[in-house]
Amino acid sequence: MSPLKRIAYFVGLPIVLIVLWYALSFGSTNFFVPKPIELAQTLWTTWIGDRFFEDVLPSLGRLAVGLFFAIGLGIVLGLLIGSTRWLRNLLEPLLEFFRAIPPPVLVPLLMLLIGVNDSMKVAVIISGAIWPVLLNTVEGVRAVDSVLNDSCRSYGIAGFARIRYFVLPAVTPQIMAGVRQSLSIGLILMVISEMFASSSGLGFTIVQFQRNFAIPEMWSGIVVLGLIGLGLAIIFQFVERRVLHWYHGLKEITHDS
């Protein structure tokens, strides 16, 4: 495919949609529907400046800390639980139950236990985002190739080396699949924790706009959240490509043959 055609495919539909939006909202005085240019201006004036440092950055910071601990703890605990059979049997039904609890209900619960502060919001993100990583890691450790496992054992590879060179690479595809789910859950929880109990942050600000009927500002907030989601997805894809390049390569080869 020629590069020109590729670009056309890439931007074609978005341009058509924006033009359509522009045309349809041109003469409209509908209070709820923003116009494209107006929205772009509002986006700029509302979010660039003080608000960026007071609301957006702290929100992103909490999200980053929460996700870091959720993923880290998820992998470590997952490796531990997955490689100890009795521990796995002991905890599996319990973990299934915890995963099934819709994470947003933990917001009022943790508010009570920790109080309304930053650590509560981080705890909410951790307590919701840890499950996909944890359970996928457990599942992955359980499904490691038994031949490779026996080979490791007969070569006397044990302890840390076994985890570093055999278990961890083997479960990385599963871990990454879990991380992908964790990212979106983490983002949702960041917003909810701020909507429910906060006086700052992205979620709070957007709800505030809506309550004051500041409609263009509200829409611009939705766009900001969308951009953050998109940014996370792009970062994830980049990291996944790097971490799992061997895996994608392997899959391509086995598909070809």
Partner: peptide, 26 residues
Amino acid sequence: RRATHTTIEFLRPIPSVALIPLAVLI
């Protein structure tokens, strides 16, 4: 498939909770 790829990839990661204010409003 090709033409909708970018649009889908853009809309998909928008967290659905971002629509809460909109839902309340409407």
